[in-house]
């Protein structure tokens, strides 16, 4: 038996969804977008020159909140901290970095023609 990880490794080919313009996401900030009714958080991690996406739902108290969290890093690992109770999740792996929470789903991001695409 292994630990519980919820990271989805898409079995099928990734479907890229066009979301918003890159300038719609503030530097070192995040927004939530709706993709087919699903809430996804996207982060423009300017400090690291990276883009990240994950589920907007914080698994701790089931609040749609992660896009409103502060991003940063812990020992170099990029992360987002939920605004409700400061549970932190790795933006690379989705792993909960504090303690006791389930992991989150993270999704690939690509930038094309100044638009942000999320792969689901």
């Amino acid at each position: 038996m292994t630990s519980t990880t919820n990271i989805i490794t898409p079995a099928k080919a990734i479907i890229w969804h066009k979301t918003v313009k890159t300038i719609d996401i503030p530097q070192n900030g995040g927004v939530a977008v709706l993709i087919d009714g699903q809430q996804i958080a996207i982060f423009n991690f300017t400090e690291k020159g990276e883009w990240y996406a994950c589920q907007n739902l914080c698994p701790h108290k089931m609040e749609m909140a992660l896009s409103r969290g502060l991003i940063g890093d812990a020992n170099g690992e990029p992360k987002v901290a939920c605004p409700f109770h400061k549970k932190s999740f790795s933006l690379e792996t989705g792993e909960c970095l504090n303690d006791s929470c389930n992991n989150i789903n993270v999704f690939p991001v690509k930038i094309e023609d100044d638009f942000v695409f999320v792969g689901l």
Partner: peptide, 10 residues
Amino acid sequence: HGAGCEICKP
């Protein structure tokens, strides 16, 4: 150093 976090940013 690093990218900051939910402590030093606020």
